[in-house]
């Protein structure tokens, strides 16, 4: 009756709303938590202390150097054809502008191909990327590479339409990458609305002039930590089932959704299993990654440091694409493993979370392990609105719903426990 007990305690029993309440306490205390900040380190200390207080085992952190990028003050102002403040957010790793800013004529393109076609007219200008949103995975290349592509043509800065399918005039930040051997030019995102407006202005033949000011700076890498807590396995403690999410966030909003919800879903799953006195045969390990937003920095360091342990990772789970109403799991692994998961999820019919889809694309930090053939899963949930809030000031505690978190925790904790407790290892190549 293990699964029914977990479901009952979370939906109507004394563990009801604990994931939401613990997340809210954390978010209200720390707000957003960018890598390299003292606030993130304080948040990590808080989680270590809470883990000990709530009885988790082998609680510790593992150090890793992470990028330290600081936004500073920033603004973008449309000067011509009329005056308007443009809501903007500098992109992570961007250089700043000179102190007086950059005032330049702007040119709008809808794609990298259009940029190539007008390459002769780009020199000395601010390039605005007004790309159409297709999907996050397909469109995010404009955020990542806009600055490098435009710099190759002599542009002085880039402004990128935010990578979101829906906008209430919200800019959405995120990491960007400079290519080798190109001039590093300042780059920021603007809102979809402003991007569309600037395109219309250009199409009417109007001359666009923008003043961009950014104080962004990159400092030497700083020490941060992955946060680890366990329930030690009762019979095969060397074998490990990982549940995870990332504790860092962007420096806007509160990072309640990305990835406070995922981190607390994983961490509180262990807390509630411990509270219920459920100790599986294998070790259950919660890992709260650091510096995911800067390029999976904490995960890469962890995988490297635990290379010798890789064969003992039985199953790896991560939630980093929303904790809305859960539907099941997204899975990567061989077909037999999917069958095992389907059998486990059939235990959760009462809460309608029986679907298994492939692949496990909502778990960026576990991709290193998945690519080595270790089976894993991410949370399948009603995340249609996830990218409305993603990396924006709208990512606050209001995105999270106590009932959805109860259901998601019931699913997450049940799967983690059963996988860690059944006789057979999860099938793998």
């Amino acid at each position: 009756t293990v699964v029914n007990r977990i479901i009952h305690s979370l939906l109507v029993g004394d563990l009801q709303n604990t994931t939401y309440r613990r997340l809210a306490e954390f978010i209200d205390k720390f707000g957003n938590r960018i890598a390299g900040s003292e606030n993130l380190e304080n948040a990590i200390d808080y989680m270590l202390n809470k883990s000990v207080e709530l009885g988790l085992e082998n609680v510790h952190s593992e150090e890793v150097y992470v990028p330290h990028w600081v936004r500073g003050n920033e603004s973008a102002v449309l000067i011509q054809p009329r005056y308007q403040n443009l809501n903007m957010l500098g992109l992570g790793s961007s250089v700043g502008t000179p102190v007086d800013g950059i005032t330049a004529e702007a040119v709008v393109v809808d794609s990298f191909e259009e940029l190539e076609n007008i390459a002769a007219h780009v020199y000395g200008k601010i390039v605005i990327f007004n790309e159409r949103y297709i999907s996050y995975g397909e469109t995010v290349k404009y955020r990542q590479f806009a600055a490098s592509k435009a710099a190759e043509q002599g542009a002085v800065a880039t402004l990128v339409r935010s990578i979101t399918p829906f906008s209430l005039n919200t800019p959405h930040t995120g990491w960007q990458d400079y290519s080798d051997n190109v001039t590093k030019i300042p780059t920021a995102c603007i809102t979809a609305e402003d991007s569309h407006m600037l395109r219309r202005m250009q199409d009417r033949g109007e001359r666009i002039i923008i003043k961009l000011k950014m104080e962004a700076q990159t400092f030497s890498p700083k020490l941060s930590r992955n946060t680890i807590a366990e329930i030690k396995g009762g019979e095969k403690p060397e074998k490990v089932v990982v549940v995870s999410g990332h504790l860092d966030s962007w420096d806007v909003g509160e990072g309640a959704m990305d990835d406070g919800g995922g981190a607390f879903l994983s961490w509180n799953s262990l807390v509630i299993l411990k509270y219920l006195g459920l100790r599986p045969k294998r070790t259950l390990r919660a890992i709260l990654w650091t510096a995911e937003e800067e390029g999976l920095v904490g995960a890469q360091a962890y995988v490297k440091a635990h290379k010798n342990e890789t064969q003992n990772f039985n199953f790896v789970m991560e939630s980093d694409e929303g904790t809305f109403t859960p539907l099941g799991l997204k899975y990567t692994g061989i077909p037999d493993g999917k069958c095992v998961l389907e059998a486990i999820l059939s235990l959760l019919k009462d809460i309608n979370t029986t679907t298994v889809e492939e692949p496990a694309d909502g778990g960026p930090d576990i991709t290193f392990w998945l690519s080595e053939g270790i089976p894993g899963a991410s949370l399948l949930n009603r995340a249609e609105s996830y990218f409305w809030y993603h990396h924006s000031a709208a990512d606050t505690m209001d995105v999270e719903d106590p009932e959805a978190l109860n259901l998601a925790t019931a699913l997450w904790a049940s799967v983690a426990y059963v996988v860690a407790d059944i006789t057979a290892d999860m099938p793998r190549k």
Binding site: V3, P335, V340, S346, T423, A424, P427
Partner: peptide, 24 residues
């Protein structure tokens, strides 16, 4: 309860299916 159409497509051994069902 797990012997629905979805699970019947699978190749996992019946004893493992029974073991998983016991967690309900």
């Amino acid at each position: 309860t797990i012997f629905n159409n979805e699970v019947n497509q699978c190749t996992i051994p019946p004893e493992l299916q029974k073991e998983i069902a016991s967690y309900k």
